[in-house]
Simulated assay, not measured.
Amino acid sequence: MTELKKLLPRIPPDNPAVIMDPVDQPIIVRVDRIDGLFRLAVTDHGIGIPEEKQGFVFDRFFRVHENSQHYAGLGMELYICAQIIHQHNGEIGLVSEEGSGSTLWFSLPDTLHTI
């Protein structure tokens, strides 16, 4: 349970959606309960992630723009989030289209709704 409390502050403040989204576009945070799951999704309208890199975003030290100085981070935030979520029988995923933005989401059994 303590690990989940560490996870929630990472989404959305340290989420790439917040860092990369153009300032004039809204970032949408949605929380739902669906089929016994608690689900949180963060959607941006930013640069998106190329399809060939999407399968790696939850890997340790992976950075979509590895040579860029415009985006901070070591490539650990999403890896850490994924580890915490998986330890609590949850799932994490990404839907993205390059040039159109991304949705990062996670779901957990809603038996944990008391966090």
Rank of each mutant, 00 (worst) to 15 (best):
Gly36Pro: 02
Gln69Asn: 06
Glu98Cys: 09
Glu98Met: 12
Gly48Lys: 08
Met1Gln: 02
His113Phe: 09
Gly90Glu: 08
Val42Ala: 03
Gly73Leu: 14
Lys6Asp: 03
Ile28Thr: 09
Phe38Ile: 04
Val23Lys: 12
Ile115Gly: 00
Pro9Ala: 06
Arg10Phe: 02
Thr103Ile: 07
Val42Ser: 05
Ser107Phe: 04
Pro9Asn: 09
Glu98Thr: 11
Asp59Pro: 00
Gln25Pro: 01
Gln25Ser: 08
Arg30Ile: 06
Phe61Val: 01
Pro22Asn: 15
Leu8Glu: 09
Arg63His: 13
Ile47Leu: 12
Gln25Ala: 03
Gln83Ile: 00
Leu40Met: 15
Leu7Asp: 00
Ile34Glu: 11
Met76Arg: 03
Asn67Thr: 13
Gly73Lys: 10
His65Gly: 05
Val57Asp: 02
Asp21His: 07
Val64Thr: 12
Ile27Met: 07
Asp44Phe: 00
Asp59Asn: 13
Pro16Met: 10
Pro16Phe: 06
Leu94Met: 10
Asp110Trp: 09
His86Asp: 13
His113Gly: 04
Glu66His: 08
Val57Glu: 01
Asn15Leu: 11
Val29Thr: 05
Ile28Lys: 07
Arg60Asn: 04
Ser107Glu: 15
His45Ile: 01
Leu74Thr: 04
Ile92Ala: 07
Cys81Gly: 00
Arg63Asp: 14
Lys53Asn: 11
Ser102Pro: 12
Arg33Gln: 14
Val18Asp: 12
Leu94Trp: 04
Ile80Lys: 02
Pro26His: 03
Val42Gln: 02
Arg30Ala: 08
Gly73Met: 12
Leu104Asp: 05
Leu78Asp: 01
Gly90Ile: 06
Gly73Arg: 11
Trp105Phe: 12
Asp44Ala: 00
Pro16Lys: 08
Lys6Phe: 03
Gly36Trp: 04
Thr103His: 07
Ile34Asn: 11
Glu3His: 08
Glu3Leu: 10
His70Met: 13
Asp21Leu: 01
His113Pro: 01
Ile85Asp: 03
Lys53Leu: 15
Arg39His: 09
Cys81Glu: 01
Leu74Asn: 08
Leu74Glu: 08
Ile84His: 03
Gly48Thr: 08
Phe61Tyr: 10
Glu3Trp: 00
Glu77Asp: 12
Leu78Ala: 04
Pro13Phe: 10
Asp110Pro: 06
Gln87Ala: 14
Asp32Ile: 10
Leu37Pro: 01
Tyr71Asn: 11
Leu7Pro: 02
Gly75Phe: 10
Gly101Glu: 14
Leu4Ala: 04
Pro13Cys: 09
Asp14Val: 01
Leu40Cys: 15
Pro16Cys: 03
Lys6Gly: 00
Ser96Met: 06
Ile85Leu: 04
His65Arg: 13
Met1Tyr: 06
Asp24Ala: 11
Ile84Val: 12
Ser96Asn: 08
Arg60Met: 02
Asp32Pro: 00
Ile47Met: 09
Asp110His: 09
Val95Met: 12
Ile49Met: 06
Asn89Tyr: 06
